[in-house]
Design a protein around this nucleic acid. Structure first.
Lengths: 220, 220
DNA sequence: AAGTGGTCTAGACCACAGC
DNA sequence: CTGTGGTCTAGACCACTTG
């Protein structure tokens, strides 16, 4: 591995692990030059790549800080409804509807609300073998998805996006009419080869869509 | 505009215009150094960016050549229904329902069928200013999406995935019941800053879903 | 004013793949 | 062996922005 790749990898590890949260400053280039005993170009290449990937934001004088996850990357990356709402400046709230333990699996149902309207119903199963700390967590302050993002590093994820019409029970929970269209996102997340969690998020179609923008490395 | 960006832009113009086809060699770094009277790092930054974007392929000693078009990229796999069906071993067929020219815009409606069942309704608009060859194309052998992938290089794409319920007209075309849930994919595709095409694909929810698998650092 | 990133220079050595 | 890209060095000047 290159030196510049190693620098980037070291920095990314701190960000992805949650040690450096969005807004946290990255050491200045001259500091990293000293730390890794290398030329500035080498450090610059590492950080410039992270900036191009949207992981950090760079501003002259102000320095480099960890970037807020982009809402438009929701399709490709793990979505965090609370953080997404915060970026949009909309009030967010979540309610735990149920929480049941069955052997090594914790099942949690959560309702997410944004701007006073139900945004999504979350039905999640968490593998306690992979995440033993979840056994005593009530998810009252932090919703399960966000909590998991903070407490466990994922290495692989699978998304399946589909659609369905709301039955009576779902319609009631989401505050929509029976028969209305809903978007569903089924996600399974692994750490190495261990399944951490699987979740189904159901959104009213008129309140949410998934957006992705893809460039070829250019000016996006 | 930077010097390195200008170099990249100059090279990309030759590739996107078709002057340099896949396999055509890019001038070596030392040649570009001389042409632009700059240091090698500056040239390198320009070409390295293009290589990262998949526009060119670099090999030691062999040099840099224009890469094959990115038809196989994951983003667009979502789109090529014919290729997808072939992989699944299912018979695929498409029918052009309408084809209208309005000024510099060609509007084409296509029905995609797989295994004898309607799979998707495609409503597409093509900018003839960006793709003049489309003016005389009937899309009888190759559906519009596949045809475009083969005839024009894209640089940026935007996807929006949503859901809706089928109205009477849509239900009839897709062979489903009115009120059934449908998945919609709206995609806009650009070459440089020019919009090439925008398309809405509508799938019956019980016949299609979008799947993506993502790792950290590796593309799926 | 001072410190940050943005960009560039003019070298250098190395690994690799063809000849 | 030679020419290519891959990477790095040790500077430099500039633009910008914040305090």
């Amino acid at each position: 591995m290159n030196l510049s790749e190693r620098i980037r990898s070291d920095l990314e590890a701190r960000i992805l692990s949650g040690e450096w949260k969005p807004g946290h400053p990255i050491p200045a280039e001259h500091a990293l030059m000293a730390e890794y005993r290398c030329a500035r170009m080498t450090v610059n290449k590492a950080i410039a790549g992270m900036a191009a990937a949207g992981l950090v934001t760079r501003r002259r004088r102000a320095g480099t800080v960890v970037a807020a996850p982009a809402a438009e990357r929701a399709v490709l990356e793990i979505a965090d409804l609370a953080a997404e709402s915060e970026e949009l400046g909309l009030p967010y709230r979540h309610t735990i509807l149920s929480r049941e333990m069955a052997g090594d699996v914790l099942a949690v149902t959560t309702l997410h609300e944004r701007g006073g309207l139900p945004l999504a119903l979350e039905e999640r199963r968490i593998a306690l073998t992979a995440v033993p700390q979840a056994r005593d967590e009530r998810f009252e302050d932090v919703p399960p998805g966000t909590w998991l993002l903070r407490h466990v590093a994922w290495t692989e994820a699978e998304h399946v996006i589909g659609a369905r019409t709301a039955d009576a029970a779902l319609a009631k929970r989401l505050g929509i009419a029976r028969g209305d269209a809903c978007l569903t996102l089924d996600r399974r997340t692994w750490q190495a080869r261990d399944l951490i969690t699987e979740v189904r998020l159901t959104y009213p179609a008129d309140r949410h869509s998934f957006t992705g923008r893809f460039g070829r490395g250019g000016s996006s």
